[in-house]
Design a protein around this nucleic acid. Structure first.
Lengths: 256, 256
DNA sequence: CGTCTTTTTGAACGTTCTCAAGGGATGTGG
DNA sequence: CCACATCCCTTGAGAACGTTCAAAAAGACG
């Protein structure tokens, strides 16, 4: 069921053209210049499609591709030798995948699709060329890296300082907010299939305790989280409960 | 006692010349080309020196400078409204400070000196210019961002999956290893003053439990951690105990 | 309809937290 | 040089939070 890690096999060159890139209509993304779009079109290898559960690349591998999420949601997680796993973060449309492989080191994590997803594929070898010729692109890459770092910080704060209820609420807020920002939840409800086992692996809790905590939050009417969707009846109340400062990024996400 | 956040006040332009940059002799850093060094010399504003406990910039600020660590160790931490704080990571010579301010957003954390430290100061406004003219530099920046991300991942794994003893051991290994890599602990002992309260804030543990866990590790002869230094009698045993896979980065750290 | 996955519940146990107090080291001013 | 303040470390004890083991119920899927 797992897809090949190696290049080429599933690349569908000449799928949708860049002219119909699904990211461009996102008004919250900064629009690339026509010239930048020509460059990107020339560099991209094609698109790949993954179904829920399929692995994009494994921990320890050195993929020859870099990816941008065109649609869908993915997650990256780190596996321990004894079988435990820690989910690091989720990835949404516009996110860049493979920062580490861009600089030629082993991936410290694996990436797998959470919903069906399409990725835009670039050749790793041409990364330097791309960055050298398009300084706007390296600036955007820095932007994405800085914001990813900020997201990981927030996760660290959750794991280090928040109790189980606060962690659950913070995760729900984070996911729904990102979904709203990327137009995946126009009505404030995110359709995504996440098992309680996955939540537990994200938040560093046991499955049993995750279940009980989730029930408690449901009883408090703070989150409406089922196997297939996440809803937050009162976003302000949920943020307050989780202890999240209302910091929204002013600048629109860049387009890569 | 806290230093001004504003530009200029404490900048010592014309301190040590770049020709004597303390980072260059590190054989584990990739050496910059003569041309790159000329560029860097032209862009840098000067050096700043901080003593233990002094704050480089605060959470929520928008510093007009970017920094590279020339010597010393710093930490960045995120403060919650109720006074709790979570230490995110430590920074060592060669690290870049201010990725977020490079792309013009608010800093999500504060940075403070843990030992006395000197930083190399650059103007934020000229960041784009620098990246555009020196593609090698944006590549190096990407390298640093990717490795910082990896370090944060490891921290997330600690907080999510490891118990108190394992966390303590993992942190000791991480700090000593980074110190060895940056030549701050030639004999394998790192001279750094870290209180148990700071350890607790890094690992998401209470001060009391941190203290008891530290004693347990001392009894097990796994770490030799006092207020002013960290030693690891048997590195392999400590790594094993903490559950750290022995992954060393092949490529030398870049020089920025 | 049967199988597999996911959720739910109970109960005992263990880790970690909180509260409270004392002790040691260092520094400062009288 | 002593008295006092401050900062950090240490110890005890009860309570809270979260884990583990075990089993059953509820959904999802072919």
């Amino acid at each position: 069921m797992a897809r090949e890690d190696e290049a080429g096999l599933l690349v569908q060159v000449g799928g949708k053209r860049c002219a119909q890139c699904p990211l461009v209509p996102y008004e919250r993304l900064s629009q690339p210049s026509p010239e930048l779009r020509r460059w990107i079109a020339a560099f991209r290898q094609g698109e790949m499609r993954y179904d829920r559960g399929e692995v994009v690349f494994t921990q320890g591998s050195r993929p020859r591709q870099l990816y941008t999420v065109l649609s869908g949601i993915l997650m990256r997680s780190r596996l321990l030798e004894d079988g435990r796993r820690q989910i690091i973060n989720f990835m949404f449309p516009g996110d860049f995948i493979g920062l580490q492989s861009a600089v030629d080191s082993e991936m410290s994590h694996e990436v797998e699709a959470v919903t069906s997803a399409t990725l835009c594929v670039f050749a790793r070898e041409r990364f330097f060329e791309l960055v050298a010729s398009q300084p706007q692109l390296s600036f955007d890459l820095t932007w994405l890296a800085a914001h990813e770092e900020s997201a990981l910080e927030e996760h660290i704060v959750s794991l280090g300082q928040r109790n189980a209820r606060e962690r659950l609420a913070a995760l729900a807020v984070f996911l729904v907010q990102r979904a709203i920002d990327t137009r995946l939840a126009p009505d404030g409800v995110l359709a995504i299939t996440i098992t309680q086992g996955q939540i537990a692996d994200m938040l560093g809790l046991s499955l049993v305790h995750t279940n009980r905590t989730l029930q408690a939050l449901r009883r408090l009417q703070l989150v409406d989280w089922t196997l297939t969707s996440i809803g937050i009846p009162d976003m302000a109340a949920a943020r307050q409960f989780a202890g999240i400062d209302g910091v929204a990024s002013a600048r629109p996400r860049p387009y890569i």
